[in-house]
Computed example of a mutant assay.
Amino acid sequence: MQAQDPAQIAHLLAELRQEHRDLDVAIQQMATSIGCDELQITRMKKRKLLLKDAIARLESKLIPDLDA
């Protein structure tokens, strides 16, 4: 889905930020548990980085282009 409307982008940003926060909490909980699955934690961290990149791209779409 290519969101071009600023309202759609803002909504998608909110969803991605929430997922990013949720992953952060889940990673912290898994890391402190006994017998944690390191492979699962690694996958979650990778997903978290992908979300961070997607958030940055969407945030840049919200910044208006200024002609120099």
Rank of each mutant, 00 (worst) to 15 (best):
Q4E: 02
D5S: 02
D5R: 00
A7S: 07
I9S: 00
A10S: 08
A10K: 02
L13D: 07
L13T: 13
A14S: 13
E15K: 04
E15S: 09
E15T: 01
E15H: 03
L16E: 13
L16G: 10
L16C: 12
L16H: 11
L16W: 05
R17F: 08
R17K: 10
R17I: 12
R17E: 14
E19M: 08
E19N: 07
E19K: 11
H20G: 04
R21F: 12
R21Y: 10
D22H: 14
L23F: 09
L23W: 09
D24G: 09
D24T: 05
D24L: 04
A26F: 13
A26G: 05
I27F: 14
Q28L: 11
Q29R: 13
Q29S: 11
A31M: 08
T32I: 07
T32E: 05
S33M: 09
S33Y: 07
G35M: 14
C36F: 13
E38D: 12
I41M: 15
I41W: 08
T42Q: 13
R43C: 15
K45P: 11
K45Y: 04
K46L: 11
K46F: 02
K48M: 05
K48R: 08
K48T: 00
L51W: 05
K52F: 00
A54E: 02
A54Y: 01
A54P: 05
I55G: 05
I55Q: 03
I55C: 03
A56W: 07
R57K: 11
R57N: 08
L58Y: 11
E59H: 01
S60D: 08
S60W: 02
L62N: 10
L62Q: 09
P64F: 02
D65M: 13
L66R: 06
D67K: 10
A68I: 11
A68D: 06
